[in-house]
Nucleic acid binder design. Structure first.
Length: 425
RNA sequence: GGAGAGCUGGCCGAGUGGUCGAAGGCACUUCCCUGCUAAGGAAGCAUACGGGCUUAAAUCUGUAUCGAGGGUUCGAAUCCCUCGCUCUCCGCCA
């Protein structure tokens, strides 16, 4: 959520910044709502003040045993006017709130302008794609004989679900374990196990709701609804909702390995083969809650934490700075890590690291006590470290051998019982 | 699933219709006192959103907030209703 003060003080400026990312803000509607809100709020508060004062007088008079009928008569007419003003005011505030909840974050000045993926800017490339002396297979073909079972996944649940068996399942688990161990032991994140089902308030906090409900899976629960998390960014970041943490507690660094559930509405027909785009996938997520002055550097640091995994696995990748038009709703700046997939002959997203500034913190009322002892909004960041399913895809494709086996990266071997390669037995 | 208890400020905790945004304590901040390692004294100390003043801040002022929402009332932390959460006991259960 944007700071409503910024909209009041510099509407033009905010509108033009939003335009950079292709969002059209209805300034006229906002101004109209604001003007009326101001009038109604002032009037309401005046009436309330009058009522409070009179009620106080009644109390004092009664205590002395005096007659209160004169004051009572004075207050008599206030009720109805007050009631209608109060309800109009809350309507207006609700409408303003809803308007704000649907406005994306402002892009950081360093974010390149653009309208789509095509305008993203490559920051650096690391590693050299391997040259194959045999026809390269995609991960589905490499994986199928090794235990990557799309047919059964489809039978059990439908499209975009996969069953993993045997060594593939173990490799998948090894990847997750390795990532989690690395983020906790080498980069200082606290390991968390979080709920996979969350309430609506939690999703409003990180910005998935109210705007992106169609992207989520949900379950009826009593009279309410619970949602399957689309990422553990949601649960990890919401740990500080409605909290005022002491200055010394920052930065808070959390990580979790969880499944993620996404309806993938609007991506029909894209990546239908294989396990690039699934309704359910595992991810090791990193979240940082930081002092506002530290968020820019924390972003760079987190990109490094994600890159560390790719380097350790010896997977070629590139870092891309997302353009204004391609960034997520809550981000002020985002780097994507794209891993080399030889079968697709291209780099594909495997991690996304974002600085959300105070955008989520304002929705969450997540604050810290600043140097002056006053509560101030924190900055929040999140990033994948990494998407486990896509990493499995990358390992299968990049490490495939002519005989159909797949070499296990060195760092994963301890997690694989010392195995250096997997193959059809 | 059944029965009961509770939810008040950063924390503990008092408060059952009127001058209560809320006693008292702890913690914290500033000042004073004292030289002996901690004690004593004074003051301050919630958040959000408006309005006035201001370049801005400070400050002043109004409103709201005692788990959430609704109701009764001139007036609600206090009474009524609905919901949420926590705890205890019983049952069931990985």
């Amino acid at each position: 959520m944007l700071d409503i003060q910024a909209l009041r003080n510099d509407l033009e400026g905010v509108v033009s910044q939003l335009k950079r990312r292709g969002f059209v803000f209805d300034a006229a509607k906002f101004t109209a709502l604001e003007t009326e809100r101001k009038t109604v709020q002032t009037r309401t508060q005046d009436l309330q003040a009058k009522r409070n004062q009179s009620s106080k007088q009644i109390g004092m008079a009664k205590a002395k045993g005096e007659d209160v009928s004169a004051i009572m008569a004075e207050v008599a007419g206030l009720g109805e006017q007050l009631k209608s003003d109060e309800s109009r005011l809350s309507e207006l505030q609700l409408e303003l709130q809803n308007m704000l909840l649907n406005v994306p974050n402002l892009p950081h000045v360093s974010v390149p302008d653009g309208v789509s993926e095509a305008d993203n800017v490559e920051v650096r490339r690391v590693g050299v794609p391997r040259v194959f002396d045999f026809p390269v297979k995609d991960h589905a073909d490499v994986g199928a004989p090794l235990g990557l079972d799309f047919d059964t996944g489809a039978k059990l649940s439908g499209a975009r679900f996969t069953l993993m068996r045997g060594q593939i399942a173990k490799l998948h688990r090894a990847l997750a374990q390795f990532m989690l161990d690395t983020q906790t032991e080498q980069h200082g994140y606290e390991e968390c196990y979080t709920p996979y089902l969350v309430n609506a308030e939690t999703l409003v906090g990180t910005g998935q709701l109210p705007k992106f409900e169609e992207d989520l899976f949900s379950l009826a629960h009593n009279d309410s609804k619970l949602y399957l998390i689309p990422t553990s960014e949601v649960t990890l970041t919401n740990t500080v909702r409605d909290e005022i943490v002491p200055l010394e507690a920052l930065p808070i660094k959390l990580t979790a390995h969880t499944p993620c559930f996404r309806s993938e509405a609007g991506s029909y027909g894209r990546d239908t083969k294989g396990m690039i785009r699934q309704h359910q996938f595992d991810k090791v997520e990193m979240v940082q809650i930081v002092h506002p002055e530290k968020s820019d550097e924390a972003l760079e640091e987190m990109v490094g934490h994600a890159e560390h995994i790719l380097k350790a696995l010896a997977l070629p990748y590139r870092v891309v700075s997302l353009c204004t038009g391609d960034m997520g709703f809550g981000a002020t700046k985002t780097y994507d890590l794209e891993v080399w997939l030889p079968a697709q002959n291209t780099y594909r997203e495997i991690s996304s690291v974002s600085n959300c500034g105070a955008f989520q913190a304002r929705r969450l009322q997540a604050r810290f006590r600043n140097e002056q002892g006053k509560p101030e909004l924190v900055h929040t960041l999140n990033g994948s470290g990494l998407a486990v399913g896509r990493t499995l895809v990358a390992v299968l494709e990049n490490n495939q051998q002519a005989d159909g086996s797949v070499t296990i990266p060195e760092v994963l071997r301890p997690y694989m019982g010392g195995l250096s390669s997997i193959s059809v037995r």
